[in-house]
């Protein structure tokens, strides 16, 4: 029987209250959202918070919507959005199908009913799927503390395995993905069995002007990519035409720059191979979607 160590429990009633509680209880307190990473870690006594601050009542952190600021639109995803909600979001399907691709292969439907977008990002598991997807989309994380809000690029959000830029008395409130025309995106994952963490996975987002790639994002997870990002492959593609050969070459470049480690999910060379192949496949599908719509 797995039982967490003793802790105190507080239920936050709003973002400001959650920040006040984090401030009062200090670095040994933790926020709990869906709890599907934190509670298992507490049961294994890998995580031993002294105080757990429940943010499930924070309506401010819920919902998926289009936010407009300075004439530019962005998809706003609240930190407390459950995985199921993002998977079924018509806005996600319309604008960023990569998120739907990724959600479909995160854990299983019952876990997705509980787990949250913010929880997954803040857990910062090096094999986490949305971290790669949001990296590909050039998303922005919005973090709130006692002094107000700040925005951090998804590419600067993680500082290492299980570590993020979110401070001890701060809370991730939402993720914003800028909406620009001509986009297509896709996510490809190889897993040992349904619902498992990735052996390797990769997502790609393309923004096209006719057949020219004006902007590109490639996110990789579980393969030791720095900041979940295949920056060299992005640089290679940006500004050039959409061609099969260039997508294959981008995969080769991506594979060259990852640093996978061998574990029970596979040896290093296999993961490196997957990083390249999945990059190419995601690019191919992202381009097809940009050119022919989400059904591609």
């Amino acid at each position: 029987m797995q039982v967490p160590a003793q802790f105190d429990y507080e239920r936050a009633t709003g973002v400001a209250h959650a920040i006040a509680l984090l401030t009062r209880y200090g670095p040994e307190s933790r926020l709990v959202a869906g709890g599907h990473s934190l509670i298992p870690m507490m049961k294994l006594r890998i995580a031993n918070p002294e105080t757990l601050i429940d943010i499930n009542d924070l309506d401010e952190l819920k919902g998926i919507s289009i936010a407009s600021a300075d004439g530019a639109d962005a998809l706003r995803i609240g930190a407390m959005v459950r995985h199921t909600e993002l998977l079924e979001s018509p806005l996600a399907v319309e604008h960023f199908p990569i998120l739907v691709d990724a959600e479909r292969v995160i854990a299983d439907p019952v876990v997705r009913n509980r787990g949250t977008i913010g929880g997954s990002l803040c857990q910062a598991d090096p094999s986490e799927d949305l971290s790669a997807a949001f990296t590909a989309l050039h998303a922005v994380a919005v973090i709130e503390g006692a002094d107000g809000r700040r925005e951090v690029s998804a590419r600067e959000f993680h500082t290492g395995p299980y570590q993020t830029v979110v401070g001890d008395a701060e809370i991730l409130v939402e993720v914003r993905v800028p909406i620009r025309p001509g986009s297509g995106s896709a996510y490809e994952k190889v897993e040992r069995r349904v619902g498992d963490w990735a052996v390797a996975a990769g997502g790609a987002a393309l923004w096209l002007d006719a057949d020219t790639i004006t902007e590109v994002g490639i996110g990789l997870t579980a393969v030791g990519a720095e900041h979940f990002c295949a920056a060299q492959a992005e640089d290679y593609l940006r500004g050039g035409p959409v061609t099969e050969e260039r997508f294959v070459e981008a995969g080769r470049i991506a594979a060259e720059h990852v640093r996978p480690t061998a574990d029970q999910r596979g040896p290093e060379d296999y993961k490196r191979h997957l990083a390249g192949e999945l990059t190419t496949r995601a690019l191919r599908r992202a381009a097809a979607r940009a050119q022919h719509g989400t059904e591609a």
């Binding site: 429990y9 239920r11 709890g35 599907h36």
Partner: peptide, 15 residues
């Protein structure tokens, strides 16, 4: 109304 795995939910979270 949502199916959840009750081994990974704290009873206090169901308050």
């Amino acid at each position: 109304g949502q199916p959840v795995k009750s081994c990974t939910v704290l009873a206090v979270m169901a308050d």
